[in-house]
Amino acid sequence: MSESRLPEREDGTVVFGVPLPKDLRALKDLAPLIIKHHYEIDYIHSYAQDSPFFAGLANNRLLGTRCDSCNYTYATPRAHCMECGRECTWVELPQEGQIHTFTVCHYGSEEFLKETPFILALIGFPGVDTLFLTRVVGLDPQASSLDWIGMRVKAKFRRLSELRPTDVYFVPTGA
């Protein structure tokens, strides 16, 4: 016969001494009770129509897309053209460009906090209409200056691909 009660947790008491006044009218003065929830999840994420870009990264190639119809060229790829709605073709991007703008993150989201300070930049490429967001490595994060804009940079690829956009990063061409 099964026991007619829920088992208690094996690690014993976790909440201690919760007050409750004798006079229930005093409950409105009870301090709020606060607990901690843990929440963690693995998502199954398909890069779907963006997949070829990541296949490119894993093979040390930087891929963008070009609209077959209006010739608009995207450094950050999209499968359909934002200007005319037609389907785009995959093209190889130059691996050298210029810093269009940048920042140095001294703080960051929790996931990246341990990597601070890091340089985020948007890179422009000759003959390409849109930009590409990336990390720039090889500049002193404490010496940020507007003079960094226009600096020529080149792509470098991590040896071990993770199929993430950080498989590629940029360094000054002189470096």
Partner: peptide
Amino acid sequence: PVGGFYSGYYAMMVV
């Protein structure tokens, strides 16, 4: 994934 941080995005815009 590159370093998602809104203060960073706005900083790039104002730079």
